[in-house]
Nucleic acid binder design. Structure first.
Length: 577
DNA sequence: GCCGTTTTCGGCCCGACTGTTTTCAGTCG
């Protein structure tokens, strides 16, 4: 799948065109095409083979030609031509906060600066302050930007950002002049990683709100301080932007600050066509500047003849078109979840007892639970022998009786390097539920890995494929595998795909969930893979992925009532061809 | 460069903050 590569190419072209001072709409066109391709669920090579490149929104004849050349030859003559005029390295300079295309070009033309190293030298020699329209303050600002870029980790996982956001929201809520607080941006959309944290406050005393924010004990440095907008860097090097508006504009501001940018642009275009203007203060009629909506998000969308759109969908991935038609999905919610179908206990590498996990499940309002400890081959995880599993079965039955709570006796089998499972099929059929996944030999070729998983699924004994792509966000890439092929065989074998809720996995990912549902009609299961009772709380992250994948309760097996779930589990093996 | 139930030409989202300026360009989200 070369989608990321092609997107990178188009983004480079966009950046060089901007440096060159080309028409800004042309610049935007390339960037927009890149964004579209980045979010495409299908490999762009397939679209190319079918001659359907121009069917991608934002890709016209000219950009299609450039993609074609790149896919055929692995290079782009257009990019190379541009590179002769403007060195590609300058794109890196723009990564420094405070340095945009104009300044980058100025630095290059006047001082010969091409790299971050060059920039550092020019700054310490105080050459930057003498450039036209720049002064000592700009020099200092760029220097700070350079330090920030070294310090600031790139995007941080949702699982780390969410607790920070919750803490800040709690802190701000204690002030009487703060009427409402919400974390917005990609965090509210529950993206798997977060760049900056965006927080919105409703207040009639902006000044006090800003001071309260910048005096939050976690703040290390104030980057910008305005009357309605400020930015800080926390001690953990996370950038937080705070925006304050009056309560009567809160809905419009919430909408604006939640994004995504692409979603907002679409909405503003719709507003214009209706004779309105949409900004963070409200919806205004252009002819007399009269405000017609703004206090709530619902009324902002309603003013544009749209139903309220859940934040997780606001990515300009077709949600606005569906909203117009009244065909938005009724997304699955945490309260729909009736049980966790993949948890570990202290029988293998978990830390809680069976009783502990059951108590945790009951506390969360679940109706059932599946205990799926590791099997023998996974020595590092204290995997169980068949004898041990039989012993565990008795214990599970005992606890189930005592607690009057349905527990499935299952396991998480290991898909070995050759695609066999670590127990023979006859034994696996004894278990009430079989979850299976890849836990070793990650570095196989694409073909081998695909064949390995296909072979395992075709055994027909697997109910759920756990963490289907094996990625660890920011630590390990997904293994090389042909996802489409896996989904296809999953359909044939009635296998459900797991959405693993662990914030470092979130696997399957949102985009693939949507594809699994829409193109393959698969069922998904949202599991925590909890290794402790507390870990059961991770379910919310998996639900977020499902929502971003447009899933409804009916698409998610563990929203089923107990009886219906049992039928599905039994039926799965009977339906095998 | 892309796009079109008001268009194949003429549009293309909107505003805050900063610094260096005397009215605004550049950057950012």
């Amino acid at each position: 799948m070369k989608n990321q590569e092609v997107a990178l190419l188009l983004n480079k072209i966009s950046a060089l065109l901007e440096l060159k001072g080309e028409n800004r709409f042309k610049v935007i066109a390339y960037a927009e095409a890149a964004r579209r391709i980045e979010n495409l669920p299908t490999p762009i090579e397939n679209l190319y083979r079918e001659g359907k490149l121009s069917e991608i929104p934002g890709v016209g004849q000219s950009i299609a030609e450039k993609i074609k050349e790149y896919l055929e030859t692995g290079k782009s003559s257009y990019l190379e031509e541009l590179g002769k005029e403007i060195p590609e390295e300058l794109i890196e300079l723009e990564q420094v906060p405070g340095v945009g295309p104009k300044v980058a070009l100025l630095l290059y033309k006047e001082l010969g600066v091409r790299t971050l190293d060059d920039l550092e030298k020019a700054l310490s020699a105080h050459k930057v302050r003498n450039l036209p329209r720049l002064g000592p303050k700009s020099e200092e600002n760029i220097l700070r930007g350079l330090e920030t870029i070294k310090r600031r980790s790139s995007r941080i996982p949702l699982g780390l950002a969410l607790p920070v956001a919750e803490e800040l929201v709690l802190y701000l809520k204690q002030f009487p002049f703060v009427e409402r607080v919400d974390a917005c941006g990609s965090l509210r959309r529950m993206k798997e990683t977060i760049g900056d944290l965006d927080v919105l406050v409703a207040s009639n005393d902006e000044e006090k709100a800003m001071q309260a924010f910048t005096r939050w004990p976690e703040v290390q440095e104030v980057l910008a301080f305005g009357s309605t907008k400020s930015s800080v860097l926390t001690k953990s090097a996370l950038q937080i932007d705070l925006r304050v508006v009056r309560p009567e504009s809160y809905g419009a501001a919430l909408q604006y600050f939640t994004g995504s940018q692409a979603h907002n642009i679409k909405l503003r275009e719709i507003a214009i066509r209706k004779g309105f203007k949409l900004n963070e203060y409200g919806v205004f009629r252009i002819e007399d500047d009269k405000k017609i909506a703004g206090a709530t998000e619902e009324e902002v969308y309603a003013a544009l003849d749209l139903p309220w759109i859940p934040p997780e969908l606001r990515e300009d991935q077709g949600e606005i078109e569906k909203a117009k038609l009244g065909e938005l999905p009724h997304l699955v919610e945490l309260k729909d979840i009736k049980g966790d179908l993949h948890v570990h206990t202290d029988w293998s590498d978990g830390t809680s007892t069976i009783e502990g996990m059951v108590r945790g499940a009951k506390k969360r309002g679940y109706e059932y639970l599946a205990i799926c400890d590791h099997a023998q081959s996974l020595g590092v995880a204290g995997g169980l022998t068949w004898e041990k599993f039989q012993e565990q079965k008795l214990k599970i039955e005992e606890v189930s009786q005592k607690e009057n709570f349905p527990i499935l006796w299952g396991l998480e089998a290991n898909i070995l390097a050759d695609g066999d499972l670590d127990f023979p099929e006859e034994i696996l059929r004894e278990f009430q539920i079989v979850v299976a996944g890849v836990h070793s030999a990650f570095r196989q070729t694409r073909g081998k890995m695909t064949e390995r998983i296909v072979h395992a699924l075709k055994s027909g004994v697997i109910h759920i494929l756990s963490h289907p792509t094996g990625r660890l966000i920011g630590k390990r890439d997904p293994y090389e595998v042909e996802v489409e092929k896996i989904l296809e065989v999953a359909r044939e074998s009635n296998t459900a795909m797991e959405i693993n809720s662990s914030p470092e996995r979130l696997d399957l990912k949102d985009r693939d969930c949507r594809k699994a549902k829409e193109e393959y009609g698969l069922k998904m299961v949202i599991n925590t893979d909890a290794h402790s009772e507390e870990n059961l709380d991770l379910m919310k992250y998996g639900v977020a992925v499902a929502r971003r994948g447009w899933l409804e309760p009916g698409d998610v097996l563990n929203t089923y009532p107990w009886k219906q779930l049992l039928e599905w589990l039994k039926g799965k093996r009977e339906r095998m061809p």
